[in-house]
């Protein structure tokens, strides 16, 4: 069976800089795949390629076996691709509820308002529905982004450092949520520097360094991999 999301041989060059170099990764339905790597390894760039925000120099992206490499961002979203952003990108002047509502409506949800409220409650910010998004503290804003991504009715959920800005309690709750989403059959791809979260909730982890996948496997395998320790985890 082929994976829900397949990234094959993707490279991205910015002038002389090679941000992503012949990367191969995949994400399966029902599991959480970790994507870790040093700063500047190309993780965000890879997310941009997958969602069509950044054209790849070479390589293909397939979703459930269909090649989507040439589709614009919004078409990919409609096929079931949703993401959050490392630097928050909410609709700042809309209310929290409307932020999620817009996404639910795009997804063709028959009862978008109910869905939006339910998703906000699910991520734990239901009581903020009436606030204006711009007034939220970072932690809550991250959770609203997750709710908005879920409203797209995704098959693949890409999360770019969702735990940065969350404190320890919030991070733990996020971990529980992501596991339960995977349990419902979503393919979750998680970029995160909080190693305890990654080790705890990921089924498999791929490690990117200088744009290349240098290791992948279970969290335990990856953690013990000498190249990963050298490039990313450090001796500690």
């Amino acid at each position: 069976m082929s994976a829900t999301l397949e990234v094959t041989g993707v490279s991205v060059h910015f002038g002389g800089v090679t941000a992503v170099d012949d990367a191969h990764i995949s994400a399966d339905a029902g599991s959480v795949t970790g994507l870790i790597g040093p700063n500047g390894a190309g993780k965000t760039t890879l997310f941009n390629v997958i969602t069509g925000v950044q054209p790849a120099t070479t390589g293909t992206v397939t979703l459930e076996g269909t090649d989507i490499s040439r589709l614009p961002t919004f078409r990919r979203a409609r096929l079931g691709m949703a993401r959050t952003f490392q630097r928050l990108e909410l609709f700042w002047t809309l209310s929290v509820l409307d932020n999620v509502l817009v996404a639910a409506e795009q997804a063709g949800d028959p009862t978008p308002a109910e869905t939006a409220q339910r998703l906000l409650e699910r991520v734990g910010v239901g009581q903020l529905a009436g606030e204006q998004a711009g007034s939220l503290p970072t932690g809550s804003a991250r959770l609203v982004e997750v709710a908005r991504a879920l409203a797209c009715e995704p098959k693949v959920l890409l999360l770019d450092e969702p735990a940065s800005g969350l404190d320890e309690t919030e991070t733990r709750q996020l971990g529980v949520l992501l596991r339960s989403l995977a349990g419902e059959g979503l393919a979750v791809l998680l970029v995160e520097h909080d190693m305890s979260l990654v080790m705890e909730i990921c089924d498999t982890v791929s490690v990117l360094d200088l744009g290349r996948v240098i290791a992948s496997g279970t969290p335990a395998e990856v953690r013990a991999h000498p190249m990963v320790i050298e490039a990313y985890l450090g001796a500690a």
Binding site: P38, N39, E161, M195, Y232, L233, G234, A236
Partner: peptide, 11 residues
Amino acid sequence: SMGLAPKIVGQ
């Protein structure tokens, strides 16, 4: 340390 790889944080 926000957004930094563990190795860099250590360094």
